[in-house]
């Protein structure tokens, strides 16, 4: 689904209200996760940080968004602290459960709450990185475990995507 067809209202880690229109106009790289995630999320955010470093000045054209699938624990404050450890371009988005469900649905991202021992829980979630063009059109995904050298060229494809021709 193109970003232009999506409808959600979330809050970024600085407390600003955000929606699909926040992303349209610049290419977007987005990842779903949660801050209580010990393995996949810090690894992917570190990878994203590395890709942004590799892109250098080109990275400044990109929206980079980390969207929580665990809004119960990932408050605006929790997101702010968490993203501060990674590349400064990365924005952290959270919001009410219903709005998280809407953005995940728009991205065709899946997530599920899974109880663990001692009354805790973890989240299963889509670990791919989504890429959209400046007009909001979906370009491609970077799958988890995909060799690092494939990622930066894919991001460049999203950067080169025409602003026109959104569907």
């Amino acid at each position: 689904m193109a970003l232009t067809e999506m409808d959600f209202r979330l809050t970024d880690h600085e407390g600003n209200e955000v929606g699909p229109e926040t992303l349209i106009g610049r290419p977007t790289m987005a990842f779903f996760g949660f801050t209580y995630c010990p393995d996949v999320c810090p690894t992917t955010l570190s990878d994203i940080s590395g890709w942004l470093d590799d892109l250098g000045d080109e990275a400044k054209q990109l929206n980079v968004v980390f969207i929580t699938v665990d809004p119960e624990r990932d408050t605006v404050e929790a997101m702010a602290e968490y993203v501060s450890y990674f590349h400064p371009a990365i924005r952290g988005w959270t919001g009410p459960e219903g709005q998280i469900a809407r953005i995940a649905d728009g991205f065709r991202a899946a997530y599920e709450r899974v109880p663990t021992e001692g009354g805790d829980y973890t989240m299963n979630h889509t670990a791919s990185v989504f890429l959209f063009g400046a007009a909001g059109r979906f370009v491609t995904m970077i799958d988890y475990h995909e060799p690092r050298e494939f990622a930066v060229p894919k991001i460049r494809r999203a950067l080169e995507e025409e602003t026109e021709g959104a569907t």
Binding site: V40, V114, A127, D143, Y144
Partner: peptide, 18 residues
């Protein structure tokens, strides 16, 4: 208190679980 060996798996749909 609870150290355990865990494994992350990513399925064909790209969903990771532990």
């Amino acid at each position: 208190m609870m150290p355990e060996i865990h494994e992350t798996k990513t399925n064909a749909e790209g969903v990771s679980s532990m």
